[in-house]
């Protein structure tokens, strides 16, 4: 059995176990600074995982490695049975299956809300425009802003923009959604409207990985909480266990500072 056969066999075996994201010993450095240190974790289908940790702990770097916005230097990342490597086709495939929502929304300011949402379906999935428009309008309905379709991002509030960003990611019918601090740039009264959309998404069975500081969201929605510090995974557990009875000293310290 050759190496590539073994890899294929392993990949298939991993896919068969409905593991959506598998990370094995992932390492990443920015110059001398080690951003990710032996990250290993498995995220299953329909699971909602919240990643917590102080700033600079590598949460965002990790989540950005999963759709190759950052390149990991050691270890393996397998997303839905496809291994992330330098193979451009794999990267393309993974990116079209993984939706991402950013802290700064990153909507395209020169396109209307509708065009923001239909851009990728039309040019990546090659879908007819009318069909994409209909999908986009129903997605806007789902995130609660159907009346904003013809406006430009600059005309919307932060909360509305972030909901458009979620709709834009959903338009590609992703199997996994990544959220990189989706509420950190929002005014307090707008956080709720975005969290409500995310909760609805979680209930609908979407596999989600969320980097956030919203402890309420973690407690209410997460199936699992991962706590990171200095590029390492310190502790993993259910929200009840994590918030009421953490094992690690560092977790306790973190919780005492924020709660």
């Amino acid at each position: 059995m050759s190496v590539s056969d073994a890899t294929t066999a392993l990949t298939e075996a991993l896919a068969a176990r409905d593991d959506m994201i598998v990370c094995e010993g992932v390492n990443k450095w920015f110059g001398d600074f080690q951003a990710l240190d032996e990250i290993s974790a498995v995220i299953k289908e329909r699971e909602v995982v919240v990643v917590l940790g102080p700033s600079g702990s590598g949460k965002s770097t990790w989540i950005r490695c999963i759709n190759r916005l950052e390149v990991h230097q050691e270890g393996r990342i397998v997303v839905d049975g496809i291994e992330l490597s330098n193979d451009l086709r794999n990267i393309e495939k993974i990116r079209s299956e993984v939706g991402m929502v950013f802290q700064q929304f990153n909507l395209f300011p020169h396109l209307t809300v509708l065009d923001n949402i239909t851009l990728a379906p039309i040019w990546v999935r090659k879908k007819p425009k009318r069909e994409s428009d209909d999908t986009a309008r129903s997605l806007l309905e789902r995130v609660g802003i159907p009346e904003q379709a013809e406006k430009y991002p600059g005309q919307l509030s932060g909360g509305q923009q972030q909901r458009v960003a979620i709709a834009r990611a959903l338009a590609m019918e992703p199997r996994i959604m990544l959220f990189d601090e989706p509420t950190s740039a929002l005014d307090p009264e707008m956080i709720k409207e975005v969290l409500d959309v995310m909760k609805e998404l979680a209930r609908s069975g979407m596999t989600m990985m969320v980097v956030t500081h919203e402890m309420g969201f973690a407690r209410e929605v997460a199936d699992r909480v991962i706590f990171m510090e200095e590029g390492q995974i310190v502790e993993t557990g259910t929200p009840e266990h994590f918030f009421t009875d953490p094992r690690e000293e560092r977790t306790k310290l973190f919780l005492s500072q924020i709660l």
Partner: peptide, 29 residues
């Protein structure tokens, strides 16, 4: 902004499509 490239990449847009539909219209402005 770099976020525009990242958002386009995250949506799976190919390099040329990204340049044509996202980067150039904003750069030209």
């Amino acid at each position: 902004p770099k976020g525009q490239t990242e958002a386009a990449q995250a949506l799976g847009l190919r390099r040329l499509t990204m340049l044509r539909r996202v980067i150039l219209p904003q750069a030209l402005r």
